[in-house]
Write a protein that binds this DNA or RNA. Structure first.
Lengths: 231, 231
DNA sequence: CTCCTTCTGTTCTCTACCGGACATAAAGAG
DNA sequence: CTCTTTATGTCCGGTAGAGAACAGAAGGAG
């Protein structure tokens, strides 16, 4: 996993420019649960994830939560911030520990407005994330917990680049916007069908193809969108 | 309604530039149900809504649907298209008849890349719509039909600029991603509480304040975001 | 006017999921 | 080892909403 610690947005930038950025990007580790940006605030740093996964989560006043975005090594976590003056209503934190390259947000803001290549790459990344979010908004409304869990596990798998991760059912419940007992139920079903295995937070995906069949069409739609822009 | 047929994004552009655009913008009417863009396709025209409301709807393979975006006179319907190469998975159509200013999409694309002012305005518009969508994605998961219907009616009201519209329960059901009978139920409750009145598709909002109390916090969040960028 | 379509109201069964409580079991700290 | 924390399993009543069927009511077309 540490082997291919590459960020795909950065990798898509043209050679000379990419190199000039490299010296200004600081490699950092992303410990579990660390917050990348807070709601309503201008971020201090911009993060290009190189491994691990970050989640954007919406917190309602009554304490209920749901995931409204997910970042792996395909993009820039703060990309939406760069577009304008609006305040993000959500928090973003590390869901699965990893690594990133970071830059002071103000500096990246300058790159975004000055570098054609960076600007273009960020917009492409925003577009993909936006379309994905649209699909997930509909999925949240129309599909049941088992399908959504399967879809979510596959999405995490794509971004984590592996089949084993540490995720408690409690945590998955907050991501899916469901009760923990509901996750226990549906995860039990998936395990019974030999699609996943888990114990005390250690989840292994045994049968990705089967899991995709158990998920809704949203996984395939999202899959086609999320690597869209690096080419 | 026809009196203030203004598009707020256009209105936010600096004077000389706005005038130079005017001659290239063709005023058109937006009849009910007309499609503004199809999934996976590059739009033929770009639309600045001046009155009425357009909806972006996600269609699942089983025929179920949910609204994943809404445009009134605050923005540019095809703004997300301008950002990159990805194909939108959704359709956009007119939910409430009105008017718009339109321009061939290719021409607007050129403006987007050449005019600093247009570029900036479109990005701001994308940002707002993106954050709104995040809120609605969570809302879809966490809040019940009555709250969502109240929230949705208020959102339509803000964008339509009036308190009376023609919307069948069947239609609202496809927007909310719910059964028609569920809409009948919750609309009945809202009417019983004197918040709305309706008959055969004609809805009147009687008590916006009360309706806001019946809705979830998402309405206020979205309200703060959607006019964000024109100032 | 009558016919027909559209829209709404209502009922009933069935299921997923909530919301809460409680039991068990594994991991880790000491 | 024991004690504590964390993660999971399970049960159970309650409810929102799906899903389907049907009745009535308003409007429009002829």
């Amino acid at each position: 996993m540490a082997a291919k610690a590459v960020n795909l947005l950065l990798a898509s930038l043209p050679q000379p420019y990419r190199d000039s950025l490299a010296s200004r990007l600081k490699p950092i580790s992303l410990p579990l649960k660390i917050v990348l940006y807070e709601p309503e605030e201008t971020p201090k740093y911009a993060h290009f994830v190189t491994s691990g996964v970050a989640s954007i989560v919406s917190n309602m006043a009554d304490g209920s939560t749901a995931e409204v975005g997910i970042w792996g090594n395909e993009g820039l976590v703060e990309s939406f911030h760069l577009l304008g003056q609006a305040r993000v209503p959500n928090r973003c934190f590390v869901q699965m520990e990893g690594t990133a390259l970071r830059m002071p947000y103000k500096e990246l803001q300058a790159e975004f407005s000055q570098s054609e290549a960076m600007h273009h790459a960020v917009l492409q990344c925003v577009q993909s994330q936006g379309f994905i979010l649209g699909q997930l908004a509909a999925c949240n409304r129309l599909h049941d917990a088992e399908q959504r869990l399967a879809r979510w596990l596959l999405m995490v798998r794509d971004r984590a680049g592996g089949d084993t991760f540490h995720l408690t059912q409690e945590f998955m419940a907050t991501m899916l916007g469901a009760r923990r007992t509901t996750v226990t139920q549906v995860a039990g079903t998936l395990q019974k069908h030999q699609l996943i295995r888990y114990s005390r937070g250690n989840i292994t995906i045994l049968d990705p193809k089967g899991l995709e069949k158990a998920s809704c069409e949203c996984y395939a739609t999202v899959r086609n969108l999320y690597l869209n822009y690096y080419r």
